[in-house]
Design a protein around this nucleic acid. Sequence first.
DNA 1: ACTATACTTGAATTCTGTTCATATAGATTA
DNA 2: TAATCTATATGAACAGAATTCAAGTATAGT
Lengths: 307, 307
Amino acid sequence: MIELRHLKTLAALRDTGSLVEAAERVFLTQSALSHQIKDLEERLNCSLFIRKTKPICFTSAGQRVLTLADDVLPMIRNAERDIARLAGGETGRLNMAIECHSCFQWLMPTIDIFRENWPEVEMDLSSGFSFSPLPALARGELDLVITSDPKEMNGIYYEALFTYEVQLALSKKHPLARKNHIEPQDLASETLICYPVDRNRLDVFTRFLDPADVEPNEIRTAELTVMMLQLVASSRGISALPCWALTEYVERDYVAVRPLTSKGIWSTLYAAIREDQKNSEFMRDFLVTARETSFKNLSGIRTAAKT
Amino acid sequence: MIELRHLKTLAALRDTGSLVEAAERVFLTQSALSHQIKDLEERLNCSLFIRKTKPICFTSAGQRVLTLADDVLPMIRNAERDIARLAGGETGRLNMAIECHSCFQWLMPTIDIFRENWPEVEMDLSSGFSFSPLPALARGELDLVITSDPKEMNGIYYEALFTYEVQLALSKKHPLARKNHIEPQDLASETLICYPVDRNRLDVFTRFLDPADVEPNEIRTAELTVMMLQLVASSRGISALPCWALTEYVERDYVAVRPLTSKGIWSTLYAAIREDQKNSEFMRDFLVTARETSFKNLSGIRTAAKT
DNA sequence: ACTATACTTGAATTCTGTTCATATAGATTA
DNA sequence: TAATCTATATGAACAGAATTCAAGTATAGT
């Protein structure tokens, strides 16, 4: 009757509030979900939620299924992890590197949870822009690199984690804050603040300014997100950052945030690992945990299409 | 990865101790189960139980899955019942009748559990051999009749509950107790003790004695199982009864028990209900509960083939 | 009235799970 | 030791379920 897939769907439906996004979260088409739910409703012979409302609203039966999902799904997940440990050995090494400091925000909670579940796996995290992590990954010095531009490389496998919008942070009194989206020309007279990395690694350039052949008036760098936003807040420049890195500042009403382009610029974060670790039990679990944690803690992110 | 079906299979496997019986318990072929488990083991990439042993023995991974099953399956069942109540209304009437007194043994616990879950359903149980329950069921005076011979009748639907062996109870010092199975001729000189019902309603006659054209020396009747067994124990006669009605007496070493025929005589217990109640939510739940309870409390019973 | 966006529906398709038929292994009996 | 029996495994064929595809309906925003 009720299947695990139904529970996952319903939970995704609650988390996202719409069939379209729920579908993408469980890697199905929206149509599939429509069928699936209709079918379940028929079998239970009662409806589970009201579709007509903006964030869809669950009936009491729907809520009952949701509490079931909340009880059951974590149990399944835990059991699967326990078995993975039994099957795949409890130990291993997981040296990570991030290319962008703001990733700390979701990576730290992920690491915390992971460490609890795999106490025997040795972990290390190196960041900093001093060396190129991908060759180190290939060489075996690192085991996982978080990056947003996956360049094809022998023996390296990329797994998409999630997709997010890159948005422009600007002072609340900045004239551009009155536009509801920003076009490349708008930045021609601005000071752009970026992480100190090669400019063709940055989406603002590769996907926004360069295609329109626009150059900002000035470019400044800063290593830390907080730093960048202090500069932005005090009108010393503007900066393009992942939306999830900005939410807390927006909520504190510290800066204004605007989409780039009417469609918005969307980017995907990948975990790069070595092919040979692709099926390692603890690695698989780490990736799943990372996704779980991100979806829970980060707002405005979406599921990435399959690699 | 892990699916509910796997949990059900593993639980059945533990309860029955063999693939063949587990398969019948979940209404699949033994082959299906073999494939299913093999597939799961591959996906988890570890084996779940050792096949070579008599009552199969679970690995630690298998045990982990079993505890998962024990946690999860009841939750699912409860949720489904809750939703059934939400969908189908909480109230109704359930007047039952049994044709054989020994059914009290499993029916009482069933009723207890059912009453907790459906407090608003009005229940009544009439037994006694004074009236024929099936016409009363058709007329609408009764809602459910437990019987072991389903005679085709308009508007009546039979649902098989479980299958059991009819065995011969005899005094421990009875000469026949030395044979390891009983043939019809063996009873020609015996006193047979039966429930006071029409003899063509009794399997001992219809499926054992009559086909061999054997008549017992004497026939006595008794209404209650305890009574029958007192007579048997004191060598005043022998009696053919469902194995599950005998286990407690055998365990107490009160009587001896032997199969009829080398193959044994197997019989099936049915719930007769009116067609129109077939899909009633509480009726469906009652039948499932009845089966659950029986399998838990009665030893030596097997799943009945689909009606 | 027109264009998004979100969901539904029926038919086609794909894929997974199941059965059937048969094979293998282990135990039991002749 | 062969012969039989029982339990499980396996491969190919099959069936059915779940998913996608391609349209269609509905609603809101412009």
